[in-house]
Design a protein around this nucleic acid. Structure first.
Length: 533
RNA sequence: GCCUCAGUAGCUCAGUUGGAUAGAGCAACCGCCUUCUAAGCGGUGGGUCACAGGUUCGAAUCCUGUCUGGGGUACCA
């Protein structure tokens, strides 16, 4: 094993490079990549939950890291606004609307106290459905339409007709509810995502872009022309087993409707074929999926191949699921009346803590999110450790250029140096100017801590490239914690602002490189870098 | 059954292409604020890296098997 000595000159060069860099860690390791990254892609059937939060944090950090590594990335949200889920939601809204009308005594022949929902289980029992129903009834004309609708289904409902036994209500009202409700929910989701600094450039509606546009039929025809479909048992099948899938998959059900897979195949066909603004196409179609979709990959890959695209350009980043811990026990998220939403968590622990928490662990391991710990996690979250390091750097710079009045004597100590002086020094910095950094150290310990810190700063670029290559944002979180720890050690063992101006300047350059790197690392995670805490 | 992810300190988890004495945060204990922010630092205690084989000069890491836990195995989305 080579045991080479790292000279002060090399360390100086590393620091100088960081200070002159436009953005630390920037590299070209992914420069040949044109990536369409689809993630989150929730149904517009309710608020985002914790699980979505993990994909959002993971995906957005990945976008930032890949771009920092030279890739062109388009983040995209696929809106699953088609199919049974939407109908189930509409049905739930309808029931809540009936309930509201009943409470007002507006339903003929029904007492306001009567329990129409007794024994029934709404597909979407959440509180938010009641708000949607209220909004729906306030729409011009909808209240009247509901009452007319009620007259036609009243008897069936009063005799105990189940909500699931469709249709007991009119198609007209169903569509009207969906039209009203889907955009509202989507807008809420979008607002929350923006609030946590997760931005999508493209929003693709399954309903509009695939079903109403005829894209699904076109893709289906292409698959058939290529000879990969057949009819059996009244359904249309895809020969996915020819591509390594366990079995063939249904594309068109016996009732004539399409499966989710069919629309998704059309979607991926479109993504592969899409021509970008500069005339090129994407050479990487990337998705972030939950581990519950794992078995779905072979059939999707098969379909991509069957349509003549390169399956090697298709990539799925799988994330293990998030468990919600309530009273120390795992509980399934979702269909509870009171559920803990992503909004609740963000309100409770803040954007920075939530995002850092979500990406500080490998996506390969299941994440336990302890609700009871959420509040206390505020002070426990390592994100503050990193942010504090950054704030400390900023504080040092403030002290360096500001006069400091002594509280006891009232005397004012002049600033160590002027802002302009500092800027000029940074701009024209050469490695040799950093010599005082190494010469003025008093102990081996100081020297060792300093060396570790600079080596760490120097490895940032490699870390970003590794994180990009392995699609592992948690490398960055880990890195940020490590560097922060190095700095906190150094800070306690070595003073930055000293009576010797040359030493002070050199050490300030170190802090400048550190501050830039910390700010960049935090930015790659979508976390703010506060100047004071 | 098959596919897949995981099992590392009391708890939550890092450990990148195999590399030197396995790390961090939290929790426990002992120190450190007249000096750049103590949301910090130093120290102590705490690990048969699930288990058993194998490959290798060298394994938490690679291979095989076993055990335990999560997820999947739909004409749901």
């Amino acid at each position: 094993y080579l045991n080479f000595k790292i000279t002060d000159a090399l360390l100086s060069e590393a620091l100088t490079g960081i200070i002159h860099a436009e953005a630390p860690g920037k590299n070209n390791s992914q420069a040949d990549q044109r990536i369409l990254l689809e993630y989150v892609s929730a149904n517009p059937t309710g608020p985002l939950h914790i699980g979505h939060g993990r994909w959002a944090a993971l995906g957005d950090s990945l976008v930032r890291i890949l771009r920092h590594s030279g890739a062109v990335v388009t983040p995209e949200f696929y809106i699953n606004d088609f199919g049974f889920q939407m109908e189930k939601l509409a049905l739930s809204v309808w029931w809540r609307a009936v309930e509201l009308l009943k409470q007002e005594g507006a339903l003929p022949g029904v007492s306001p106290d009567a329990d129409l929902l007794a024994g029934r289980e709404l597909p979407y029992p959440g509180e938010f459905v009641i708000e949607l129903a209220q909004a729906y009834l306030q729409e011009a004309g909808q209240r009247q339409a509901m009452l007319e609708d009620w007259a036609s289904v009243q008897e069936a409902v009063l005799q105990g007709g189940e909500p699931s036994s469709l249709p007991i209500w009119s198609e007209r009202i169903k569509q009207r509810i969906i039209e009203l409700v889907a955009p509202r929910i989507l807008a809420d989701q979008r607002q929350l995502l923006e609030d946590i600094h997760v931005h999508f450039e493209v929003w693709t509606s399954e309903k509009k872009a695939l079903h109403e546009s005829g894209a699904v039929e076109r893709t289906l025809k292409q698959l058939a022309d290529n000879g990969f479909t057949y009819e059996s048992e009244g359904a249309l099948w895809f020969r996915s087993s020819e591509f390594g899938d366990e079995k063939d998959r249904v594309l068109r059900k016996t009732d004539g409707s399409y499966t989710y897979l069919t629309a998704d195949i059309a979607y991926h066909d479109e993504k592969f074929s899409r021509v970008r603004e500069d005339g090129t196409r994407y050479n990487r179609i990337m998705n972030i999926w939950g581990a519950d979709h794992h078995g779905y990959i072979p059939r999707m890959r098969g379909a991509i191949q069957a349509l003549g695209h390169d399956p090697n350009q298709f990539e799925v980043v799988l994330g293990q699921l998030v468990n919600l811990l309530v009273d120390g026990e795992r509980s399934r998220m979702g269909k509870r009346r009171k559920m803990l939403t992503l909004r609740d968590v963000v309100d409770e622990v803040g954007v920075d803590a939530t995002r850092f928490w979500m990406v500080s662990k490998s996506a390969d391991s299941a994440l336990d999110f302890d609700v009871d710990l959420a509040a206390s996690a505020t002070s426990e979250n390592p994100v503050f450790y990193v942010q504090y390091a950054h704030a400390r750097c900023c504080s040092i710079f403030r002290n360096a250029v500001e006069p400091s009045p002594n509280v006891d004597t009232g005397e004012v100590t002049p600033p160590y140096l002027q802002v302009e002086e500092l800027d000029k020094l940074a701009r024209s910095l050469t490695p040799s100017a950093l010599a005082p950094l190494f010469n003025a150290l008093e102990s081996d310990k100081e020297k060792a801590v300093l060396k570790t810190l600079i080596l760490h700063l120097d490895s940032f670029e490699d870390t970003v490239a590794d994180a990009a290559r392995l699609r592992a944002p948690h490398f960055i979180a880990q890195y940020a914690m490590d560097v922060a720890a190095n700095f906190h050690s150094f800070y306690n063992v070595c003073r930055i602002l000293t009576p010797d101006p040359e030493v002070t300047k050199a050490r300030l350059m170190l802090i400048l490189a550190l501050r830039k790197t910390l700010a960049q690392a935090l930015d790659l995670l979508g976390v703010s870098a506060p100047e004071r805490m």
